[in-house]
Design a protein around this nucleic acid. Structure first.
Lengths: 210, 210
DNA sequence: GACAACATACCAACTAGTCGGTATGGTACT
DNA sequence: AGTACCATACCGACTAGTTGGTATGTTGTC
């Protein structure tokens, strides 16, 4: 096995992430991916069965790389699980920098085009989103348990809501060519989570501070 | 001028909405649109300069038809502007029925694929989203003024946040082939708005979580 | 030699867009 | 009224270019 970090397959996957995030799945041409990766079509079809196979592999590669990225983020160091949840949200806000295609989500982009026509890609995207949400859900559930909360909502639905806000924020950022609008929505998400937990933590005996 | 409701141009636009919402912009073939509309390619190119022109026209048509649809919705009858805002959110939740491509948003789908390559389409999508958000913003601003609120957030950012949640909820619904997950996110949005306004209505403040 | 990892050349299918043409209806002039 | 003229609406075969995929090498390594 040659250097996995810079193998042709890895370069093809990296190129796929870049191009699909900018243009979407359908508009992404295999030849463009090859050119960006610096390999030829023969090499591409050695590593992937076809375009759909690339998309599925790209979704898994995306899950793996972003998963490792978030696992190494500093917010995990908080003792309080709620601090970890809020730290996660702040971290998501902090990485809204640079060009739009550099902070938006591969699988959120792909699933829009493929959910009805490419079940394998849809499943791969769902697995990526759900897997990521599950990590957030764990911290939310821990924070709820710590406070003995029994709200009408579940940790799972709130975790998925965080993903919905982020995905929607990406769409607004694309429409407006502006990351700031996405950051505003993430601020609202943070505010919501604080309100949800404040309601239970303080039992409405809330100090005046404004 | 022939019957505008069933003219070839209108049928082409209706067909475009259906197909683009299911497959996205790039994967939509002009011939499919023509076939669904029951017209020929010659007719298509008589009415539209090309595929991009169709997409721009479809975004405007989408704004017009959905705009009229929401304008006629019953939640506008509430006297209290906050009731109108919450009524809007409930209405958005109520229409999450049927197949995914029947309740998802055309412009949210299109902008993902076109923001970087088709500025004209992106602008049309932005206009559609922003125009819709502005209507929500008006009610939010009225509710804020009524309560003499001066929060850190603005009516505009909250209105755009509602759109982000909805767009994100659509992505989750597509990934999971399930409208229920979208409804859960809209519930969280309603809960958030209630908390934001309850905070001011009931004169209670929040502790600082940082 | 066997196999993985590439490269080159090529094809078949698809598709956006073109183009010459027809049908219809309005208008203006005589 | 008749007719010449013109614009709009529409048709469908055709083209030029694109693109996913294949067939057939070549090279390096165990």
């Amino acid at each position: 096995m040659p250097d996995a970090m810079h193998s042709s397959k890895t370069r093809l996957l990296d190129a796929a992430l870049t191009i699909i995030r900018a243009r979407g799945y359908s508009a992404t041409r295999i030849e463009d991916v090859c050119e960006t990766a610096g390999v030829t079509k023969g090499s591409f079809f050695h590593h992937f069965k076809g375009k759909e196979d690339l998309a599925v592999a790209a979704a898994k590669y995306w899950s793996d790389t972003t998963g490792a990225f978030f696992d190494s983020a500093p917010y995990h160091r908080h003792e309080d699980p709620l601090e970890r949840v809020l730290g996660y949200v702040e971290f998501r806000k902090a990485i809204l920098t640079g060009k739009v295609q550099e902070f938006t989500c591969l699988v959120g982009t792909m699933v829009q085009e493929t959910y009805d026509t490419h079940p394998a890609i849809r499943d791969a995207c769902d697995a990526s989103i759900s897997g990521h949400a599950a990590k957030v859900e764990a911290d939310i559930a821990a924070a709820m348990k710590q406070r003995k909360m029994q709200p009408r909502w579940t940790a799972k639905s709130l975790a998925l809501h965080t993903q919905a806000v982020l995905q929607g924020a990406f769409i607004l950022a694309k429409a407006k060519k502006d990351a700031a609008i996405a950051a505003d929505s993430v601020d609202h998400l943070r505010c919501y989570i604080e309100l949800l937990f404040a309601e239970y933590s303080e039992k409405r005996n809330l100090p005046d501070h404004r």
